[in-house]
Simulated scan of single mutants.
Amino acid sequence: MSKVMGLVPEIRPVDAAARAAARERQAQLLKPPGSLGRLEDVAAWVAGVTGRARPGVPRTRVVVAAADHGVVAEGVSAFPQEVTGQMLGAFGAGWAAITVLAEHAGADVVLVDAGVIAPPDGVAAVDVGLPTPSRNLAVEPALMEDEVRSAIRAGRALAGRAQADGVDLLIAGEMGIGNTTPAACLTAALCGLSPEAVVGRGTGVDDAGLWRKRAVIARALDLHGPHLDDPLEILRRLGGGELAVLAGLALGAGEHGLGLICDGVIATAAIAVAAELAPELKPRLLAGHRSVEPAHEHLLSRLGLRPLVELDLRLGEGSGAATALLLVNAACRLHDGMATFAEAGVAGA
Rank of each mutant, 00 (worst) to 15 (best):
residue 242 E to V: 02
residue 277 L to S: 11
residue 79 F to V: 03
residue 131 P to H: 04
residue 45 W to I: 05
residue 179 N to D: 12
residue 280 E to A: 15
residue 250 A to M: 03
residue 6 G to K: 14
residue 74 E to W: 14
residue 174 E to A: 04
residue 333 R to E: 14
residue 124 A to K: 14
residue 339 A to C: 03
residue 244 A to Q: 02
residue 8 V to K: 10
residue 205 V to W: 01
residue 10 E to F: 03
residue 288 G to Y: 04
residue 160 G to V: 06
residue 335 H to G: 00
residue 75 G to R: 12
residue 116 V to L: 03
residue 295 A to I: 06
residue 136 N to C: 08
residue 94 G to Q: 12
residue 343 E to W: 01
residue 174 E to P: 01
residue 100 V to N: 08
residue 25 R to D: 09
residue 196 E to G: 09
residue 99 T to R: 05
residue 333 R to P: 00
residue 228 L to R: 08
residue 304 G to T: 10
residue 233 E to A: 15
residue 73 A to G: 04
residue 88 L to G: 11
residue 169 L to I: 06
residue 19 R to A: 15
residue 8 V to F: 08
residue 136 N to L: 11
residue 286 L to Q: 04
residue 203 T to N: 06
residue 273 V to I: 15
residue 46 V to G: 02
residue 326 L to D: 01
residue 335 H to K: 08
residue 43 A to H: 01
residue 116 V to K: 03
residue 240 G to M: 03
residue 216 V to R: 00
residue 67 A to T: 05
residue 271 I to A: 12
residue 289 H to Q: 13
residue 208 A to T: 13
residue 160 G to W: 03
residue 98 I to Y: 00
residue 92 G to K: 12
residue 108 D to L: 06
residue 37 G to Y: 05
residue 299 L to C: 13
residue 246 L to N: 03
residue 44 A to L: 03
residue 195 P to Q: 13
residue 265 V to E: 13
residue 196 E to K: 11
residue 43 A to N: 03
residue 151 A to C: 10
residue 48 G to F: 07
residue 89 G to I: 04
residue 269 A to W: 05
residue 103 E to C: 05
residue 208 A to C: 00
residue 100 V to M: 12
residue 338 M to H: 06
residue 221 L to E: 03
residue 318 G to V: 09
residue 298 H to A: 14
residue 130 L to Q: 02
residue 29 L to Q: 13
residue 18 A to C: 10
residue 30 L to V: 08
residue 257 G to F: 02
residue 348 G to Q: 10
residue 22 A to G: 09
residue 340 T to M: 13
residue 289 H to G: 15
residue 117 I to A: 14
residue 186 L to S: 07
residue 294 P to A: 13
residue 149 R to S: 13
residue 161 R to K: 14
residue 288 G to H: 07
residue 212 R to Y: 06
residue 84 T to K: 10
residue 247 A to C: 15
residue 314 R to V: 07
residue 23 R to A: 15
residue 128 V to W: 02
residue 298 H to R: 13
residue 327 L to K: 01
residue 131 P to K: 01
residue 210 L to D: 09
residue 258 L to D: 01
residue 314 R to T: 01
residue 251 L to T: 01
residue 283 P to C: 14
residue 24 E to I: 00
residue 38 R to Q: 08
residue 242 E to L: 07
residue 251 L to F: 05
residue 220 A to G: 10
residue 86 Q to E: 13
residue 88 L to E: 07
residue 297 E to H: 14
residue 334 L to R: 02
residue 16 A to K: 12
residue 94 G to Y: 08
residue 17 A to H: 05
residue 348 G to S: 14
residue 294 P to R: 12
residue 301 S to M: 02
residue 268 T to A: 12
residue 240 G to Y: 02
residue 168 D to H: 09
residue 337 G to K: 05
residue 89 G to W: 02
residue 106 G to F: 11
residue 44 A to D: 06
residue 141 P to C: 09
residue 82 E to N: 09
residue 141 P to N: 10
residue 56 G to W: 04
residue 177 I to T: 04
residue 308 L to E: 05
residue 198 V to K: 08
residue 269 A to D: 08
residue 237 R to V: 12
residue 13 P to Q: 06
residue 323 T to I: 13
residue 98 I to K: 00
residue 314 R to P: 00
residue 301 S to P: 01
residue 305 L to A: 12
residue 166 G to R: 06
residue 164 A to G: 11
residue 165 D to R: 11
residue 269 A to Y: 10
residue 114 A to V: 07
residue 26 Q to G: 11
residue 297 E to N: 02
residue 143 L to V: 04
residue 318 G to C: 13
residue 14 V to I: 15
residue 107 A to G: 07
residue 125 A to D: 06
residue 150 S to G: 13
residue 66 A to S: 15
residue 127 D to P: 06
